[in-house]
Nucleic acid binder design. Structure first.
Lengths: 158, 158
DNA sequence: CTTGCTATTGCAAGAGGTTGCGCTAGGCTT
DNA sequence: AAGCCTAGCGCAACCTCTTGCAATAGCAAG
């Protein structure tokens, strides 16, 4: 189950780009009748320092480093709120566990190799082909980043 | 979160086709040094009566109807064994929960509409396009049936 | 039929995630 | 500066799934 051995793995060039996207949150929350609490502040600080993908468990761990009193339910609920504001987006890894995409700039899908455990990114052009195929078929517009598809990478198919 | 409202939902024409595929299991298990136990018998009886897809939770419930002493860990472990024999195949629903495909005759993917909750099947031809696109891109061979992709169906995209 | 090896079982504990509920405390109003 | 309304918090309980371990029971051999 070891990860990140892929020949062409997770590239994150403009990682924490648009870091300023977080700037107005306190105000944006209040504008919607929501509140800016210490717990939310902690989670947002953690997320600002994240690039790409994080699992919910990792986020809870990181929050606890800053505030040992962090409770899981609060983190999950805050993530739901942030998702409504478009600041994070949740998905499911190959095993169904939750993982969050921070600042989903460029939507891309993921492939998990069941044999070597590596995770690959689907190139945007290929993703576009997939999305187009489904739209042509059923008129369905999919969110390619919601799930990690499983299979076998080039080097692992017997 | 109600399901099965799709205009073109889950069709299962030859549902429990190849029901005979279950016939030799006891012997096949023994041939591999494994054992035929009452618990496995119960689960297989339940599976024989299933068509298409079932969640792990549903299976545990159905087993308990036949044998109230059924324990979850045994069911999960038996499902793993049956999967190695190709009799079932596990995947993950849109929310990451496990679901099993019984007698995976024709591999097909699923789409979940986040708005209306309906589940749609991806037509084999469309699935082939998707698989081909990924193979051409990265040489990756995916298992389209492992996950349920999420998005919005024709009637639900604003 | 009895014996013995070991695959399986059931239990208990634990990890990840969700939910209902009473109390706390943001933050707008006066 | 004080008060009120209610969003959000922490807790406890529950659900799904996994894993380690000791005891049980298939089943093949004698």
């Amino acid at each position: 189950m070891t990860d990140q051995l892929a020949p062409q793995p997770e590239q994150d060039p403009s990682s924490n780009a648009a870091a300023g996207a977080w700037d107005g949150i306190a105000e944006r929350l209040r504008a919607g009748g929501l509140r800016w609490t210490p717990q939310r502040r902690t989670l947002v600080e953690v997320l600002r320092a994240c690039k790409g993908h994080v699992t919910a468990t990792e986020l809870i761990g990181l929050c606890r480093e800053r505030d040992a009193t962090t409770t899981p339910s609060t983190v999950y609920r805050t993530l739901d709120v942030l998702e409504e504001f478009g600041l994070v987006k949740h998905g499911h890894g190959h095993d169904g566990r939750e993982e969050y995409h921070v600042l989903p700039e460029q939507i891309h899908g993921h492939l998990y190799c069941e044999a070597c455990g590596a995770v690959w990114e689907i190139r945007p052009e290929t993703g576009a082909v997939i999305v187009a195929a489904l739209e042509a078929d059923l008129g369905f517009v999919i969110d390619l980043s919601h799930v990690t598809m499983a299979g076998r990478c080039e080097g692992c198919r017997d």
